[in-house]
């Protein structure tokens, strides 16, 4: 087990946002967290990349308890694409990618030859090498996400977590990004809004509702019409993709004036 959220509870502003969440992310797999707004998906993720300290519970990477580590040590195990994916300053792409080494370097210690090679390879792999000298503030959404994944790879993490990485991306870039996540070869925990994307891209899906884990397992087991109605409050028909066999959902608009 590469990443294990163990009995994780979080209180924010006197409210319990997350209740005793336990979730295992097997090595090399892509695990999706889905749930309606305010169900605690992002909160759970923030505990993993240490922006938040849980009230109870632990986050384990292999044998290590992340919550007992310093931020720098934790950042060597876990890389994150957070929701604030912007930057105040107009770094070049190469500079931004190199910042992925920050948890491994002391102070202003410059990058060594191996680390520069690491950056070069990561940018090549994410196909952003040609953007190296471009300013990050002028990238398109799709380019930016690939640059951020490159930065995360440079961090050499065991686990990569992503908080709604497909936000603001067009459909092609959404699909590209998730296909990429399946290829990067690290353990991935990703929060997604789009259930069809989650079903197609994730080995395991965890469904959160009101701060608790409602179900977890392979998409076809978890994303049922019953769960969708109970947790998300939507009517949908579950079908298998005619080519890939992936679970896919066909939604129905809620009828406001009786049946149409």
């Amino acid at each position: 087990m590469d990443l294990r959220l163990d009995d994780l509870s979080v209180d924010l502003g006197g409210r319990r946002i997350l209740r005793a969440l336990t979730l295992d992310v097997p090595a090399g797999q892509v695990v999706g967290l889905v749930g309606p707004n305010g169900s605690g998906k992002s909160t759970a993720l923030r505990c993993v990349y240490r922006a938040l300290t849980p009230a109870t519970g632990r986050v384990l990477v292999g044998e290590h308890d992340l919550t007992a580590m310093g931020l720098r040590d934790a950042a060597r195990h876990v890389a994150a694409l957070t929701q604030d994916s912007g930057s105040d300053l107009d770094f070049t792409v190469a500079e931004l990618v190199a910042l992925g080494r920050a948890p491994h370097l002391r102070g202003n210690q410059p990058l060594g030859a191996r680390e520069r090679e690491l950056c070069r390879r990561a940018m090549e792999r994410m196909e952003v090498s040609h953007l190296a000298e471009r300013g990050v503030l002028e990238l398109s959404g799709g380019e930016r996400q690939r640059v951020l994944v490159a930065r995360a790879l440079v961090q050499e993490p065991r686990v990569l977590v992503l908080d709604e990485p497909t936000n603001h991306l067009d459909v092609r870039h959404q699909l590209d990004l998730l296909a990429l996540l399946r290829e990067v070869g690290v353990t991935v925990l990703v929060v997604l809004h789009d259930l069809n994307l989650a079903a197609a891209a994730c080995d395991v899906v965890g469904v959160l509702g009101e701060g608790s884990l409602v179900a977890a397992g392979p998409p076809e087991k978890v994303l049922t019409e019953h769960t969708l109605r109970e947790v998300f409050g939507v009517e949908a028909t579950v079908v298998a993709h005619p080519l890939t066999g992936d679970t896919q959902l066909l939604y129905r608009l809620p009828s406001t004036k009786g049946p149409r």
Binding site: R76, A79, Q83, D84, S87
Partner: peptide
């Protein structure tokens, strides 16, 4: 540099 990426990202970079 890291802090210019936002507090959340900064945490994830240690």
């Amino acid at each position: 540099d890291v802090m210019a990426l936002g507090d959340e990202t900064a945490a994830s970079l240690g």
